[in-house]
Amino acid sequence: MDGLGRMRRHAAAFGRFAGLGSAVTLGASAALVLLSRWMPWPAANALTTVVSTVVATELHARVAFGHGRPGLSGHLKSAATTALGWLVTSAAVGALAAVRPGSGIVLQQTVYLSATALVGIGRYLVLRLGVFARRPRADRRTWAAAREAQAVAA
């Protein structure tokens, strides 16, 4: 595939990834606001992160990258990127609380969503280029034919 075609394919995948990720993140953000009224913010963030990660991993693997079901390995690798993201978002909101105690929900959500956007770009790169990268599949008939040809030659 030529360079322009590859760029278009990556741009389309990023658009799907961003759209799906944004929808899941906005849903998680709303859940976070509600849950943080009944439990400490880090716990609410952890809960929404776990649920949204499972949903987002399924959507990204199937829709954004056309990979099919991610399987346990895909979920675990995606969860590792999300764990790092959780630390970043928690640190960002924690830093806000230290710098501006009593900041309102709008500023908290602005910081949270901004940190989440940066984490999302990093997640895209890791998931697209590593976890759900399209790898050439070996054609079983080709392998069988090669073994047969090798056996005949011997």
Score class of each variant (00 low, 15 high):
Gly104Gln: 08
Gly15Arg: 02
Val126Trp: 06
Ala98Asn: 14
Leu34Thr: 11
Ile121Pro: 08
Leu35Ile: 04
Glu148Asn: 08
His67Cys: 07
Val93Trp: 01
Gly21Gln: 00
Ala46Glu: 04
Val106Asn: 08
Ala64Arg: 00
Thr48His: 01
Trp86Pro: 10
Ala46His: 05
Ala149Tyr: 03
Pro40Asn: 11
Thr49His: 10
Ser29Lys: 04
Gly94His: 07
Leu35Gln: 02
Thr57Phe: 02
Met1Asn: 05
Ser22Lys: 02
Trp38Arg: 13
Thr142Asn: 14
Leu87Ile: 09
Ser90Asn: 08
Trp86Leu: 10
Ala83Val: 15
Val63Asn: 09
Gly19Ile: 01
Pro42Ala: 00
Gly5Asp: 06
Ala28Met: 02
Gly85Ile: 02
Arg16Trp: 01
His60Met: 05
Val33Cys: 06
Thr110Cys: 11
Met1Thr: 06
Trp41Asn: 15
Phe14Val: 01
Leu26Tyr: 02
Thr142Cys: 08
Tyr124His: 12
Leu129Gln: 15
Val51Cys: 12
Ser78Val: 07
Thr89Asn: 10
Gly122Leu: 01
Ala80Glu: 08
Arg16Cys: 01
Ser114Arg: 09
Ala92Ile: 02
Leu34Ile: 14
Ala92Gly: 10
Ala149Glu: 07
Ala149Val: 10
Gly120Arg: 07
Arg134Ala: 14
Leu34Glu: 07
Ala151Trp: 08
Arg141Val: 12
Ser52Glu: 00
Leu59Trp: 01
Ala144Asp: 11
Thr81Pro: 14
Thr116Gly: 12
Ala12Lys: 04
Gly27Met: 00
Gln108Asp: 13
Ala151Met: 14
Thr53Gln: 08
Asp139Ser: 15
Ala92Cys: 14
Ala43Asn: 13
His60Gly: 01
Leu87Cys: 13
Ala12Asp: 11
Arg123Phe: 04
Arg134Thr: 14
Arg128Phe: 10
Leu20Trp: 04
Thr82Cys: 14
Arg16Ala: 03
Ala64Asn: 00
Leu113Thr: 13
Val131Ala: 06
Gly66Trp: 03
